[in-house]
């Protein structure tokens, strides 16, 4: 098995799995019906992408596991998502800020992945990039509207940005796995996406009348699995409950 490839696919699939799960938590309790429906669409896209990424990861691993096995039967330390996506929903502002911060990265990442030397990755990216182009459009416009809206909405969006700011850096921190895969042309070097990301987000924060916090401290440990936040375990406790409680049952 190509371990670096497997790890990279887990990183892709766990990101979409965990943020898709978080977004699905809004179903039924969003600010208005139109937003409820839109959030569900986004979650459905992300779950679909997860099935493809983790399905491919399972193939590459070659141990007979399925995408569901990977999603439902790994524990916290085996997850490879960035810390940003496992952060709790908080208020709607925090959810939509988290979404925009991820979407903007996700879009740049997928745009590069459509050119991957690994055909199966390029194929998945070509489907996903269309979905995520819309995700960015929507989350960006919402961040701008709420940032620019009322005093209260601005205050809440600023609080969300300040809180999530230290989780941006991890998305761009390259490790040995990234570099091995980037050298082979399978994935982009995440660090190479940073300039475009900063350029895009700078405009959005300005339009949204938000001030990016000073400093570039970045939490890490999610994508390597070394040290997730406490939140992930609680998420998995829900997500994996049935598979854990009734081992071997088919649903």
């Amino acid at each position: 098995m190509n371990n670096a490839l497997f790890e990279s696919l887990l990183r892709l699939g766990d990101n979409t799995l965990v943020i898709g799960h978080r977004v699905s938590e809004w179903c039924g309790v969003a600010p208005v019906l139109e937003e409820d429906i839109a959030l569900a669409n986004m979650a459905l896209d992300l779950i679909g992408q997860t099935q493809m990424w983790l399905g491919l990861a399972a193939d590459v691993e070659g141990e007979g596991r399925s995408a569901d096995d990977l999603a439902m039967l790994r524990d916290v330390w085996d997850f490879r998502n960035v810390l940003l996506v496992e952060q709790p929903n908080g208020d709607f502002g925090q959810t939509i800020m988290r979404q925009y911060l991820f979407d903007q990265f996700h879009l740049l990442q997928l745009q590069h992945l459509t050119q991957s030397t690994e055909d199966r990755i390029a194929a998945i990216a070509q489907k996903a990039v269309k979905e995520v182009t819309y995700h960015v459009d929507r989350s960006r416009d919402t961040v701008v509207a709420l940032g620019d809206g009322t005093e209260e909405s601005n205050r809440r969006m600023q609080a969300a940005l300040t809180k999530l700011w230290p989780y941006i850096g991890e998305m761009f921190a390259a490790d040995a796995i990234d570099l091995e895969m980037a050298t082979a042309g399978v994935i982009p070097d995440p660090a190479s996406l940073r300039a475009d990301y900063d350029a895009a987000t700078r405009v959005v924060f300005a339009d949204a009348v938000l001030t990016p916090p000073a400093g570039d401290f970045a939490h890490g440990g999610g994508k390597t699995g070394f040290r997730h936040s406490e939140h992930l375990g609680h998420l998995l406790t829900q997500m994996q409950w049935l598979q854990r409680a009734y081992p071997g049952a088919r649903w």
């Binding site: 600010p31 208005v32 709607f92 701008v144 709420l146 809206g149 909405s153």
Partner: peptide
């Protein structure tokens, strides 16, 4: 979530 609906309208 009233603040969200109000914020969008204000914008």
């Amino acid at each position: 979530n009233a603040w969200v609906r109000e914020g969008m309208m204000a914008h």
